[in-house]
């Protein structure tokens, strides 16, 4: 589903991703952990073109969607096609980024209506089901500012799911939440994983990672240091850096 080949990303002189090779198969849940500034967010953002890589290839669902050879763009597909493929990736942000001028329901139906141009009745039906799924059907006419952080994040998940993505990207979805609200969001994510969604999750919730992830990736200074199963990484990390990071946060 996702394949990164020798991906590099720099901001000016700052190299943020260095030689990233990663493959995620259908239905897999992969958690990414690592210290602040290690490039976790940038990695996710390179997948849906919020950032463009500076070297290497990214392939989503068999479609080559970014390619740079020696810093030169050698991508052959049209921007329209890229946008379509990127729409197969749902993204959930740390700070929710709900649209404050739209109600909960309007937030959810906006992209299916304007991007996919699906008929309104169908979109509304889907949105109602999604709101039920995240347990917020009674909030559909509220504005986001009237909701708690946990509720907002659940709306954000529903909004992303409304585009029927094949892959969901989560960038620290619970880091901005009060501790008592973390559980309700993780519960929705666990349900998604059980439903077979392919997920790439940047998180510091080690309990979640241990329980749900098929693989855990440890990143440091723009590199993937370790890529193994939860059992292995928690009980017997291969790398010294992984060990010291885990000791600090567990």
């Amino acid at each position: 589903m996702i394949k990164l080949e020798n991906v590099y990303k720099s901001f000016g002189k700052l190299e943020v991703l260095k030689n990233i090779n990663l493959e995620v198969t259908k239905g897999e849940v992969v958690c990414i952990i690592g210290p602040s500034g290690s490039g976790k967010s940038t990695l996710l953002r390179c997948l849906n073109h919020l950032e463009r890589i500076t070297e290497g290839r990214t392939i989503i669902d068999g479609e080559l969607i970014d390619e740079k050879v020696k810093g030169k763009d050698s991508l052959k597909i049209s921007p329209k096609k890229v946008a379509l493929v990127c729409a197969e990736l749902g993204m959930v942000f740390q700070r929710f980024n709900l649209f404050p001028h739209l109600t909960v329901l309007e937030n959810i139906i906006e992209a299916p209506l304007t991007v996919k141009k699906i008929a309104r009745e169908i979109v509304m039906e889907e949105a109602t089901l999604l709101l039920k799924k995240v347990g917020l059907e009674d909030k559909k006419d509220e504005y986001p500012s009237r909701l708690s952080g946990g509720q907002q994040q659940r709306v954000a998940i529903a909004r992303a799911l409304a585009m029927n993505p094949k892959i969901m990207l989560f960038d620290e979805p619970t880091s901005a939440l009060d501790p008592e609200l973390v559980g309700e969001v993780l519960e929705v994510m666990k349900q998604l994983a059980r439903d077979g969604m392919t997920m790439l999750v940047v998180t510091h919730e080690m309990g979640f990672a241990r329980e749900v992830a098929n693989r855990i990736i440890f990143m440091d200074q723009g590199q993937i240091i370790e890529d193994s199963s939860p059992e292995e990484i928690f009980s017997n990390p291969r790398q010294e850096r992984t060990k010291s990071f885990l000791q600090k946060i567990l």
Partner: peptide
């Protein structure tokens, strides 16, 4: 973050401007 969220949902720049950023 508003533009980014719109783009992540597959909106093009003009769509995101017209529907999300400018109304706000």
């Amino acid at each position: 973050g508003q533009m980014e969220a719109a783009k992540a949902l597959g909106m093009r720049y003009t769509q995101a401007m017209r529907r999300i950023v400018i109304p706000q």
